[in-house]
Design a protein around this nucleic acid. Sequence first.
DNA 1: AACCTTCCCTGATGGC
DNA 2: TGCCATCAGGGAAGGT
Length: 291
Amino acid sequence: MPELPEVETIRRMLNERIRGKRIDRAVCRAVKIFQIDPRVLEKSLPGQKIRRLDRRGKFLIVRLEGHWLIIHLGMTGQLTYRHRSGRTDKARLFHETAPGKRGTILDEHIHFQIRFQDGADLFFRDVRKFGKIYLLDKKVSLQKEFFTQMGLEPFSAEYRLDAFLEKMKNRNLRIKSLLLDQGFVAGIGNIYADEALFEARIHPARRLRYVRKYEKIRLFEVIPEVLEKGITFGGTTLRDYVKSDGEQGAHQHHLNVYGRRGEPCRLCSTPIEKIVLSQRGTHYCPSCQKR
DNA sequence: AACCTTCCCTGATGGC
DNA sequence: TGCCATCAGGGAAGGT
């Protein structure tokens, strides 16, 4: 479950490695994740240079010379980079070693591969295929035409208390559900929602009308802190998430509530509880986070 | 309009 | 040991 800190970790590492590289070839496999005709993708990418990588919420934005390549990792998406030291190794394109054929089966879950002219490879792997890949013409204004429903971007100038409070007006859903809504604050997922609510000492099932203003302010303040901490540790690896070098993150060792059902709260030793909200496992300390 | 539920997808896990 | 049900959840779509 890559959330903002995981996508940002990938963005930073990849930006260093692939910025300026020119694409030699692109190969697509699982049609479902492509939001455009894969043949168009395979035809459009070769020859283009990677200008830079950006991020909006959980979306990774690859800025090319003539297009925007936008990648969402969904639940189990992985984006990894490998440079085959020197050897030209054409046989190792995953497309040429499909399952059932003789020879090395690289990985049936790799759905998209970019090979650069210097021989480096970028792989998109996604077991559950919840990920999505978009290709937009550079003329498209991303903020006005693509990210139209996207909420406040943490760490940006638009992340201000007045806007944060304004987006809560006339709403009365459970606070956890609000945090999962990408139209509120962009980039928060199940793990960091639970962690932020713990830091803000708010029970996840509280409806908005029962959340006091000082609590909302506290939530506004802890969200960037919680996300920043996740980035500092290179993201949270519970199952599938890996950094772009294939290594695990380390933030899972620093979680306060997520995945800690039955374990003692780090503040008060009360066992952490788990309930289901919005069809999502939800973890909290019943003593620190009162209803 | 706001809110909630269902569905997609596959591997890991637990009960019998 | 093998089989089947259940669980994990981001976000679109559908329902109230």
